[in-house]
Design a protein around this nucleic acid. Structure first.
Lengths: 293, 293
DNA sequence: ACTTCCGAATGATCAGACGATTATCGTCGC
DNA sequence: GCGACGATAATCGTCTGATCATTCGGAAGT
């Protein structure tokens, strides 16, 4: 058979995924009837897993496997049927757990191929944060913007002393692209939003702090940026926002961290103040922005 | 039948959960065979839902229902069978979607009762962030600490001018409790960690920015704090950390925002520098801290 | 009026089957 | 020899039906 044959060629790390992590003994997982009550006791005494459901249990198992290093980024998991039998749950319950972990950015399933652990980088694991940001009501937009301002101010200060010439040139290209769009008269709002995001994202990435950059990225989703479009246009004008961008870039070029911080803070504070002053203004959740999702 | 009877008594908001959100027409959901291909086209043209799977589709539906206000915090969803039929998916696929949304802190299921929308507050929706923070490897602890420092510095500044007398008294009580523990000679590490968290949490909550406070809270999980214990003790001493706490409180008392910011930043920078200098030091993931989870 | 108990409602889990997609590998032609 | 092509197996995705476990509310009893 092939019940254990896969371990060696795939993970070659002994039987790490077997029953070593607070799991029911192997002699339980083959019981055909009434496999419930036995597990309850072990669950109750295990304080680490708050979930009483089988799926939550599996989630805890996988989480612990990753935390303990037995499952590493990019690893491939055994097939669902195997895992279900190994952990004493049905394939349906296992799939619910895998689905949840996929939603959390921990696992990734590929039909016809297998289930893999993601790279576990901030970009993957912070996807749920984008979900949160998108669901934020208008009343909390100002709060979110304040957080963004704090984080991006820091990223600008860090980037000022770390940006390479290539990155500086890239930032210049981005802004030049906007200027060309404005010059032709017809600047697509969506294009501006995307370009604006690219500008901020590049600076954040240059901060050298991956967690900081990922957080900033997550707090700047398309939905959120779409909502801000009106704030930008109504507050003053696209030109003013663009001028602030230019000021930020100029500060970055001089490697003056404090200068860059002030410019970035002022830039984001403008939108923030507007959002705070117009909490119930034209931010129709059903149509968050110009054509964006 | 009871296919639509439930709507009025439960949500009394017309047929909000029916087929209005880019869903297949009702005449499709009753097709017994081959219900696949028809949906693919509508999915392909719908750019908002990137997920090609049925579960991802359901997740998008629920997300849109919440974003559009048709589903509000605390609302009860129809029974699984009803929703599955309404949205043209099997109960299994629906459950996988519900599970994922539960993992994201959006939905909450109660066996024997029903499925409900959570309060959608930052505390609920940022639970996945704690998951992320816990999984962070040691090498990224310094980055996480830097983010914490930035956020908490801001929260300290905001709290300085907003803290009530009661909250100031509470902070004092917290620190006094630590002093008593130190005086008796035996200060439980776990107690110190919890008390330290309480101190920072109280300040964050007093910032007036719920999103900021929730983020700070999420970045300060028990696992993470456990890992920091050694950094705190080895860097200097618990007494030094406590003295810094006292300095922060003193600054808050004077309502001097800048003073408070500096004190808070210095406090967190100490731990941060230590973590950065000792990236592979004694942070056994299998035993993250002194008895903590 | 209060408590107790039972049944309906609902989510949780299991089992088996089949469809859809991808990777793999052998074969064929050049 | 080597690359393109097609068959095959492996794997995830989905559906169906059933049973178990839990909760809630009303009926019955006191």
């Amino acid at each position: 058979m092939l019940n254990v044959a896969w371990i060696a060629p795939e993970l070659n790390r002994s039987d790490l995924l077997s029953a070593e992590t607070a799991l029911p003994p192997n002699d339980l997982i083959y019981r055909p009837h009434c496999p419930y009550t036995d597990r309850v006791s072990s669950r109750t005494e295990n304080r680490s897993s708050a979930g009483s459901s089988r799926s939550d249990h599996v989630i805890d198992i996988v989480k612990n496997l990753i935390a303990s290093g037995e499952l590493r980024a990019g690893d491939r998991l055994p097939v669902e049927k195997e895992l279900a039998a190994r952990w004493g749950v049905s394939r349906g319950s296992l799939r619910e757990a895998v689905r949840s972990l996929a939603a959390l950015g921990v696992l990734e399933t590929r039909q016809g191929d297998g289930t893999y652990v993601t790279q576990l980088d901030p970009g993957s694991l912070l996807r749920p944060l984008e979900f949160w940001a998108d669901l934020q009501q208008v009343s909390q937009s100002a709060e979110l913007l304040a957080v963004r301002r704090v984080l991006e101010t820091e990223s600008a200060g860090l980037a000022a002393v770390r940006l390479t010439e290539e990155e500086l040139a890239r930032l210049d290209d981005v802004l030049t692209g906007i200027e060309e769009g404005m010059a032709t008269g017809r600047l697509d709002p969506e294009t501006f939003i995307d370009t604006d995001a690219e500008f901020h994202r590049t600076i954040a990435a240059a901060s050298g702090n991956g967690a900081l950059a990922a957080l900033i990225d997550s707090l700047m989703t398309r939905t959120l940026r779409g909502r801000l479009w009106r704030a930008i246009t109504e507050r003053a004008s696209v030109d003013e926002a663009h001028a602030e961008h230019r000021a930020i870039l100029a500060a970055l070029r001089t490697r003056d961290a404090e200068h860059a911080r002030v410019r970035m803070a002022a830039h984001l504070l403008g939108v923030e103040v507007f959002a705070a002053a117009h909490p119930t203004d034209g931010l129709d959740p059903a149509r968050p922005g110009p054509g964006s999702t």
